[in-house]
Amino acid sequence: MALSIDTGLTYSLDNIVQQLNRYVSPAIFIFGVVGNTLNCLVLSQRTLRSNPCTLFLLVSSFIDIISILFGLPTRILGGWNLDPTTTISWICKIRAFTVFSTRTMATWLIMLATIDRWLLSSTDVHRRQICSMKNVKRAIILSLIVSILTYVHMFYCYNANIEDQPLKCYGNTETCRLITDLSYAFISILIPLIIMIIFGLMTISNVHRIHSRVHHRITTILDNDERMKMKKKMLHSKKLDHHLLCMLSVEVILLIVLCVPQAIEKLYFTLKPFGSGSGLEESIKVLIYNIGLLLAFIASGMPFYINVLAGGSVYTKACSDLIQIVAEKMFGKLQ
Rank of each mutant, 00 (worst) to 15 (best):
V136K: 00
V207T: 07
N172H: 05
C259M: 13
F62W: 07
P84C: 10
H126Y: 00
L57R: 12
S183W: 08
D116C: 15
L334Y: 04
Q45E: 07
N307A: 15
A96D: 13
F199L: 07
P303Y: 02
L20D: 13
R213V: 04
L222V: 13
T10C: 10
F304K: 00
M330N: 09
Q165S: 15
E265K: 05
G277A: 13
T54I: 09
S121F: 05
L287R: 03
P261C: 11
Y151P: 02
D83Y: 05
I298E: 06
F269L: 15
N51M: 12
K137L: 12
G78I: 02
I189H: 02
Y156V: 05
R138C: 06
E282T: 14
G279R: 10
K266N: 14
T98Y: 01
R117L: 02
N172Y: 00
F331P: 06
T98I: 09
D83H: 06
V33W: 00
A2D: 15
F56P: 10
S276M: 09
L182F: 10
Y11C: 07
L142P: 03
R127D: 03
C40G: 10
F31N: 12
S205W: 04
E174K: 13
S60G: 09
D241R: 09
K137S: 09
R217I: 14
C53S: 14
L309Y: 00
F70W: 10
L244M: 14
